[in-house]
Amino acid sequence: MTLAGWIDQYTDRDWQQSTGGTVRYALIGLGWWTTDVALPAIAESEFCEATVLVSSSEEKATRIADEHGVNHGISYDEYHAGTAAEAYDAVYVATPNAFHLEYAETAAELGKGVLCEKPMEASVERAERMVDACDDADTPLMVAYRMQTDPAVRRAHELVEEGFIGKPVQVYGNNSQPLLEMIPDRDQWRLDSELTGYGTSVMDLGIYSINTTRYLLRRDPVTVESRMASHHEAFADVPDERSSFIAMLEDDVQMVCTASQRAHADTQLKITGTEGQLELRPAFHGECTLHASRGDVTVEISHASFEAVEEMREEFDYFADRLLSGREVYPDGEHGLVDMRTIEAIHRAAESGAPVDIGR
C-alpha cells in the first residue's frame, strides 16, 4: 500500500464486523473518568447504550443517572445481588484496581461481558483469578487498552507489519503527569498501595508504554531491569514516584521507559528500526499524533487532519462489536496478564537491583 492509500484509510474501522444491534452497559465506579469520559463516549457510540450506573450508594448512582439520562442507578451491594441485571448485557469496571476482581466475578456469574479497566487488578494473582472466573463462566473478558483502538496506533501497527521501519531495534517510551496538581488529594487511591497494587507510576502510566509497544510490535517483554524512587511525602506508601526500566523484548528488541506521577505532563513512544522510525507524540493523552520517517521522507498525521476519532468511543464500540458478532476479543484477559506479570517483574527488579525474568 502507498502512503497516500494508507492515509486515505486512516480512520477506517478495520475491526468492525457488525452492522447493527445494541449492547447495554452497566458502568461500575463513578469517578471523573466514568462521568466525564466514558459516559459521553457511549452516548456518541454506534452500538452502545449506558443503562445502569453502579456506585457506593444508590443515592449517588441515581443522582448521576438522572443527570445523564440513564435508566437505573444502583449501589454496589445491589449490583452483587443482581438488581437490574435484566437491564444490561455487559459491564465496564472502572473502580480502583483492587476492586476489579469482585465486580468481574459477579458479572461472570450473571453471564455478562466484562470490559475491565487497566491494569487488570492490584496483583498478578488476583488478575489470574479474574481470567479463571470469566473462563469458567464462558464470559467474554476484555481489558480496556484504549490505545489499541486509536487510529494512529492501528495504522502504526500496519506500517510495522508492512516493513516500513525494517526490523524493529529499539523502543523509547515516557508517560508522566503532575498527579497532585490534577487531583489535589494526598489520600487518593492511586497513592494507597492497598488499592493501586505494586505502585503508582508503572501501574497507572508505564503500562501505556508497555502495552502499546506490545500491540505495535507483537513482541512481549522477556527480562527487565528497573530503578524507582519516591521523594514527596504523599508518595510514602508507593515506591515509584519516579520510575525507569529497561526491558528486553522477544527478538532482542530493547525498550527503555520512564514514568512519573510527579512530573511535567509528557507522553511519547518512539520505535526505531533498521530502515525507519515511528513516533507517537503526544502518545497516550490528548490527540495522538503519528510521525513516520524513512530515509528523507517524513509524514506527520494528527487527529486534526481527519474527523476526530475518540478512542474511548471506539473501545466501547469495539467490545460491543465483538459481543454482537461473536468474534474473538483482543486484548483479552490472557493478554492483560502479560502486562501484570511484566509490572510485577519491574517492581521486583527495582527491589533487588538485578535483572528479573518475566514469568509466564
Rank of each mutant, 00 (worst) to 15 (best):
V329Q: 05
L290R: 10
D251I: 12
A263Y: 01
T258Y: 05
W32V: 12
E117P: 11
A87W: 00
A265E: 09
L110N: 14
H347E: 02
R360G: 07
E351N: 03
Q17E: 15
Y103F: 15
V153H: 07
V143Y: 08
C116F: 00
L216N: 00
G73N: 03
L110D: 11
S75P: 00
L217E: 06
T22V: 14
E250T: 11
E310K: 10
R218M: 08
E46A: 14
H303D: 15
R186G: 03
E344F: 00
Q170D: 10
E109L: 11
E117N: 14
H285E: 14
A104Y: 03
D220Y: 13
A236Q: 14
V224Q: 03
R219E: 06
L180Y: 02
S56T: 02
W6C: 08
M120E: 06
E46R: 15
D237F: 08
Y88P: 01
Y318I: 05
A26W: 12
L216R: 00
H72R: 10
V143N: 12
P140N: 10
A283E: 02
E58G: 04
M248E: 15
V143R: 07
A133R: 10
H232C: 00
E275F: 02
H335S: 08
I183C: 01
A122G: 07
G73W: 08
N211S: 02
E279M: 14
I343Y: 09
M312G: 03
V54N: 02
S302D: 11
C134H: 01
A98C: 13
L249N: 09
R129P: 01
K167W: 04
D12I: 12
V160C: 09
Y92V: 07
I246F: 14
T11A: 14
A84P: 00
G333N: 09
E275P: 03
H100T: 12
Q9A: 13
D138K: 07
Q9K: 08
L30F: 07
D317I: 01
Q188N: 13
T34P: 04
R218N: 14
T213L: 10
E105A: 15
Q268A: 08
M228L: 12
L53Q: 11
L180E: 07
D132C: 00
A41Q: 04
E161Q: 15
F47W: 13
G111E: 08
H335C: 09
S123F: 02
Y79I: 06
Y198Q: 12
R154N: 10
A137C: 04
G359C: 04
R155W: 01
G326N: 11
A229W: 03
A94V: 15
G20V: 08
A98F: 10
Y10V: 07
I183K: 01
L30D: 10
V338Y: 03
K112C: 01
D187G: 12
Q277Y: 02
V253E: 04
L217W: 04
R327K: 12
A26N: 02
T51E: 00
Y172G: 00
G336F: 07
V202I: 15
L205I: 01
G326P: 07
K60F: 09
R63K: 13
G273N: 10
A81H: 02
A283D: 03
T223G: 03
S55L: 05
F245W: 15
H303Q: 15
D136E: 15
G29P: 06
E181M: 07
D36V: 01
I64W: 01
V70N: 03
S55Y: 05
G273D: 09
W15H: 00
D150L: 05
R154I: 12
I246E: 13
M255N: 03
W32R: 15
V309G: 09
